[in-house]
């Protein structure tokens, strides 16, 4: 638990460092008159600044704590001074004057923050993090440089958040890296609350914050080394700055909206779609003031911030958005990638589109954990039209939301990819719920009853999720035992770590890469490097090219076992292993074996 507290304190210093660097970067733009927006703008700009610095340092082979810590320390010192000036003259909130239900919402948010910190303090076990969100930064840290991760096409996505995870690794350890996405989630919570308080009032702000953050889905997102909390932060800051531009005609706010739209596009291809949607909404909202200079004020910073990631892909693969649109994957990998994307949801017909809202509420498991998304977004966001003053802007915002949803519906129906919409929908839903409550007695009881019931359900589900991490964080369970329970095929990973060293090169079809200590390569997450149907010649040349000394494949993967048969190999071990199909429910897949071979004649 002491370590957890130390991690949390260091996360606080990280936020100060982001604030410090952001203060320096945004100094030419001057201060926003809105102090809270000003602080968040600086934190956001600082985070993007650190990510791009790490990206540049990585390609220059400078990923050493000795290079990172001085920048981190001096930025944190600037951040401390900036905090002093931001807080000067600010009056503390008078909680005694708040109605009890608002205090309950505030306490609920505090509870979720603690729950998410606790979950983040446990060793990293989320499958996508083990495959690349944490595994790739860990590899870069070990090599002291960024290199192309050819076997996983997802590694070509823009990696701003992964760079911040890498910063955490340089600062201390893997858990510290996992705090970066949590910090971004907390920052997006502040942005949602802040923006809603400016658009409406404190009641709306607290309710919007609870709808956005007090849900099991966000606990999972914030504590699993995922990228979406970062996109949510960037989108919410872009939207808040756009709101300021539309209301006050501040050019600096428009520039910042561009910066954060570009930041979203620099976090994942999904963020690019969110940024384009924001651009369209911005153009419609400010159509009467649309001039070429203003279009440039938004789009130039957006392009500048996002560009490095797309240029890197163009240089490495010839396709700036590899492996999409312009291709680049082999045929079977491209087909498997498409199959994986089509696997989620209920279908793509017009009827499916019509049924989408109802399925998201009542049958959302097929959307990949969609059942853990709060229903309050969908229940109350349409009710925003009950508030007369909100109708016109809400119509434009809803048009943007629907545009994004249609894109999501036809691309890949994964619930996670709806997170960029959540900040905006949370504000709409809070305005809608309060509009219903203010329309009459029945509306008040219905709104209060539904919000209370949903938030209470969320607390129960989120507590069940977080409970699995309590023993290991509290020191009542060993790290090794925890990893055995939560990480797929961990017995095999342990065997490999015991018997292989830095001079070996492992080829594996296992996706649990983070905890492998030796150099490794995979066949490709989708068979990107060596397709499953590849024959003897291709297999042998692949193994030769990469200097493979050992192969570890699952017994159930017959194509890979056939390919091992083409090689001069000797079976070293058969390790009984299990896949973890649900960490929370401790569900395991059927018994399998990891077959480990030595390649004869390899050195």
């Amino acid at each position: 638990l002491g370590e957890c507290i130390l991690h949390t304190l260091l996360a606080g210093v990280t936020a100060l460092a982001w604030l410090g660097l952001g203060s320096v970067l945004l100094a030419p733009l001057g201060h926003s008159p809105d102090r809270m927006l000003d602080a968040l703008n600086r934190i956001g700009a600082g985070a993007v600044g650190f990510a791009l610095l790490t990206f540049a340092a990585g390609w220059s082979g400078l990923l050493y704590p000795a290079a990172y810590l001085p920048v981190f320390g001096s930025s944190a010192a600037v951040g401390l001074v900036a905090t002093g000036s931001l807080l000067r003259g600010a009056s503390p909130p008078h909680f005694r004057s708040w109605p009890p239900w608002q205090l309950v919402l505030l306490a609920l948010l505090g509870f979720y923050v603690l729950l998410d910190i606790l979950s983040t303090c446990a060793p990293i076990t989320s499958p996508d993090a083990l495959l690349y969100h944490a595994a790739d930064p860990a590899r870069f840290e070990k090599d002291h440089r960024i290199s192309e991760v050819t076997w996983n096409s997802s590694s070509y996505e823009p990696f701003t958040v992964e760079m911040l995870v890498l910063d955490g690794f340089l600062l201390w350890d893997w858990v510290q890296g996992a705090f970066a996405p949590l910090l971004l989630a907390l920052a997006s919570l502040c942005a949602v609350v802040g923006a809603a308080s400016r658009i409406a009032d404190r009641a709306t702000a607290l309710l919007a914050g609870a709808i956005f953050f007090a849900q099991p889905f966000m606990s999972w997102e914030a504590s699993s080394v995922f990228v979406e909390p970062g996109i949510a932060f960037a989108v919410s800051l872009a939207a808040w700055n756009l709101f300021r531009f539309v209301r006050h005609d501040e050019l600096s706010a428009l520039i910042l909206a561009g910066v954060f739209s570009g930041a979203a596009a620099g976090m994942k291809y999904l963020g690019l779609i969110a940024a384009l949607t924001l651009g369209v909404a911005a153009a419609i909202l400010s159509r009467q003031r649309l001039r070429p200079a203003r279009v440039l004020a938004f789009s130039l910073p957006a392009v500048a911030v996002a560009l490095p990631w797309y240029v890197k892909n163009a240089v490495l693969t010839g396709n700036p958005i590899y492996p999409y649109v312009f291709g680049g994957l082999n045929e079977s990998a491209a087909a498997e990638l498409q199959d994986t994307r089509d696997m989620f949801g209920h279908g793509h017909s017009p009827l499916d589109l019509l049924l989408l809202p109802f399925r998201l509420l009542g049958d959302a498991e097929a959307f990949d954990a969609g059942e853990f998304i709060s229903p309050l977004f969908l229940i109350f966001a349409p009710l925003v039209f009950l508030a007369p003053r909100a109708r016109r802007p809400a119509a434009v915002i809803w048009a943007g939301v629907i545009l994004y949803m249609v894109g999501w519906f036809f691309a890949t129906q994964q619930a996670r990819f709806l997170v960029p919409l959540m900040p905006v929908l949370a504000v709409l839903a809070a305005v809608g719920a309060l509009a219903l409550a203010r329309r009459g007695e029945v509306g008040r009881w219905v709104a209060a009853g539904v919000v209370t019931a949903v938030l209470a359900t969320g607390v129960a589900v989120s507590s069940v999720y977080a409970a699995q991490f309590v023993p290991v964080v509290a020191g009542a369970e060993s790290r090794r035992n925890f990893l055995h329970e939560k990480v797929s095929y961990y017995d095999g990973v342990e065997w490999l770590n015991r018997h292989l060293g830095d001079d070996d090169m492992l080829l594996t079809d296992n996706w649990t890469l983070l905890y492998l200590d030796m150099p490794y390569i995979t066949f490709g997450t989708m068979g990107d490097l060596l397709p499953p149907e590849a024959g003897p010649e291709q297999t042998r040349s692949f193994v030769r090219k990469h200097g493979v000394t050992h192969v570890a494949v699952l017994k159930g993967h017959e194509n890979r076992r056939r390919q091992v048969g083409y090689l001069p190999s000797r079976l070293l071990a058969r390790i009984p292993v299990r896949a973890v199909t649900s960490r929370t429910l401790a569900e395991l897949g059927p018994p399998d074996e990891m077959l480990i071979y030595a390649i004869e004649g390899s050195t």
Binding site: F358, L361, G362, D363, A364, E371, P375, L378, I379, F380, P382, L383, F385, L386, L436, R439, G440, V442, G443, V446, A447, V450, A453, V454, T457, V461, L585
Partner: peptide, 30 residues
């Protein structure tokens, strides 16, 4: 008045759908 009634109806339907989903979730866990 009509939009108010429609809003209450939508909240009732949507909440019932979510309740149905949560019942299934609890049953699956059980």
């Amino acid at each position: 008045v009509r939009s108010y009634a429609l809003a209450v109806l939508w909240v009732a339907i949507a909440t019932a759908l979510y309740g149905w989903q949560m019942l299934h979730l609890v049953r699956d866990i059980g």
